[in-house]
C-alpha cells in the first residue's frame, strides 16, 4: 500500500519533504550543539556539559523551552508582516534542500535548473528579514533589516559568479550533474580557477548566512539583536533554526559544487561522505566566526563590490577560458 501511495508523485514529494524536514531539524539541533561546543573549545572553556550526557541534549532543551515561551507581538508592530516574516525566512531555507543531492539518486527533486533555483529561493529569505525588520517597528530591527537587504543584494552577485564558474566546468545547472562530474576525486576544488571561485563562494556565503565577520543584521554589540530583536519564543526559534539550516546548506552546497559531493573513499555511503564534508566546512565557518571581528557596513559593501565582484568576474572568464581552450574538467 505504501508503495502504491508512493507511486503517486504528489504523495511521494510530500513524503520526501517530510523526511527532509525531520532530517534538517535534527541536523540543525546537532549543529547548534556543535556551534556551542566549538565556540567553547576555541574560547578555552567546555561549552554545554551538564545537560544530558556531555551536554548532548542542550539544544533539545533550548528548543523545548522556546516552544513553551510566551509569544509576544509588540503593540506597535505591523501584525501581518511580523507574523509572516519567520515563515518567509524558514520556508525558503527548507525549500532549497529539495534539490540537494545527498547521494547518487538521493535527491528529493532534481531538475536541470537546480543551481538557479537555489539562488532564487535563497533570495526569498531576504524578504523575510526585511519584513521582520520593518514589521517589528523597532529601530534596531529596521537598521538590521536594511543592512541585511544591502548585504544580501551585494553578496548574491559574487556567489552567483562563483556558481557560474562551476556551471561552466560541469556544463550543467543540475546539482546532480555537477556532483556526478566530480566522481573519482575529480573535485572542482583541484582546478585553479575553481579554487578561487570556492574562496569567493565561501566568503559570499558567510555574508549570506549572516555570520561573523558579516553578521551585521544581528550585530549584537551594535543593534542588540538586529532584525529579530522583538521576536520571542517559537517565532524566534524559527529564525534561529533557519540560520543554522542555512549555514548547513551553504556548506553542503559548497561540498556539492567544489568538494565532489558524495564522492569519497569507498566503504561508506556517499551521503555520509557528503554530510561529513559539510560538517568540516561548517566547522571552518564556525572557526572563522569565533576568530574574526565584525566589519562595518560600508566596508562590507565595499568589500563585495570592490574585491569579490571583480575577482568573481575574473574567475568566470578564467573558468570559461580554461573550459574552452584547455578542455576544463570534461575531456
Amino acid at each position: 500500500m505504501i508503495e502504491q501511495a508512493l507511486a503517486n508523485p504528489w504523495i511521494r514529494q510530500l513524503a520526501n519533504a517530510a523526511l527532509l524536514l525531520a532530517v534538517i531539524n535534527l541536523g540543525v539541533l546537532v549543529l547548534i550543539y556543535m556551534e556551542r561546543k566549538v565556540a567553547g573549545f576555541i574560547q578555552s572553556r567546555l561549552g554545554p556539559v551538564h545537560v544530558g550526557p556531555r551536554g548532548w541534549l542542550q539544544s533539545v532543551a533550548d528548543a523545548l523551552k522556546l516552544i513553551l515561551k510566551e509569544d509576544i507581538i509588540p503593540a506597535p508592530a505591523d501584525r501581518f508582516l511580523f507574523v509572516l516574516a519567520p515563515f518567509f525566512v524558514f520556508v525558503p531555507v527548507l525549500a532549497v534542500f529539495l534539490v540537494l543531492p545527498f547521494n547518487a539518486g538521493w535527491v528529493a527533486h532534481d531538475f536541470s535548473l537546480a543551481a538557479l533555483y537555489v539562488i532564487a529561493a535563497g533570495t526569498v529569505a531576504i524578504m523575510g528579514i526585511v519584513m521582520a525588520g520593518w514589521g517589528t517597528n523597532n529601530k534596531y530591527s529596521l537598521l538590521g533589516g536594511l543592512r541585511s537587504a544591502a548585504q544580501l543584494v551585494s553578496y548574491e552577485i559574487p556567489v552567483v559568479l562563483a556558481i557560474l564558474a562551476v556551471v561552466f566546468y560541469a556544463q550543467s545547472m543540475s546539482l546532480v550533474d555537477i556532483a556526478e562530474a566530480q566522481r573519482g576525486f575529480g573535485w572542482f576544488i583541484f582546478h585553479p580557477p575553481l579554487l578561487v571561485a570556492a574562496f569567493v563562494y565561501m566568503i559570499g556565503q558567510l555574508a549570506e548566512t549572516n555570520r561573523t565577520p558579516f553578521d551585521l543584521p544581528e550585530a549584537e554589540s551594535e543593534l542588540v539583536s538586529g532584525f529579530h530583536t522583538e521576536y520571542s519564543g517559537i517565532r524566534f526559534a524559527m529564525f534561529f533554526l533557519a540560520e543554522f539550516a542555512n549555514t548547513f546548506f551553504a556548506a553542503a552546497l559548497a561540498v556539492v559544487l567544489f568538494f565532489g559531493g558524495w564522492d569519497g573513499l569507498p566503504g561508506l555511503t556517499g551521503a555520509l561522505w557528503l554530510v561529513a564534508k559539510s560538517y568540516v566546512l561548517v566547522f571552518v565557518l564556525m572557526w572563522i566566526r569565533w576568530t574574526l571581528p565584525r566589519v562595518r557596513v560600508d566596508q562590507l559593501l565595499g568589500f563585495a563590490w570592490k574585491v569579490l565582484v571583480p575577482i568573481g568576474l575574473i574567475v568566470v572568464l578564467w573558468a570559461a577560458a580554461s573550459v574552452v581552450y584547455a578542455g576544463g574538467a570534461k575531456p
Partner: peptide
C-alpha cells in the same frame, strides 16, 4: 568567561529581553 563558563549549564546571555 572561561574559568567558570555558564554555557556548561546552557545559560547564554541574550541582549534582548524578548529572548
Amino acid at each position: 568567561a572561561s574559568h567558570y563558563d555558564l554555557d556548561r549549564f546552557g545559560i547564554l546571555f541574550r541582549a534582548t529581553p524578548r529572548q
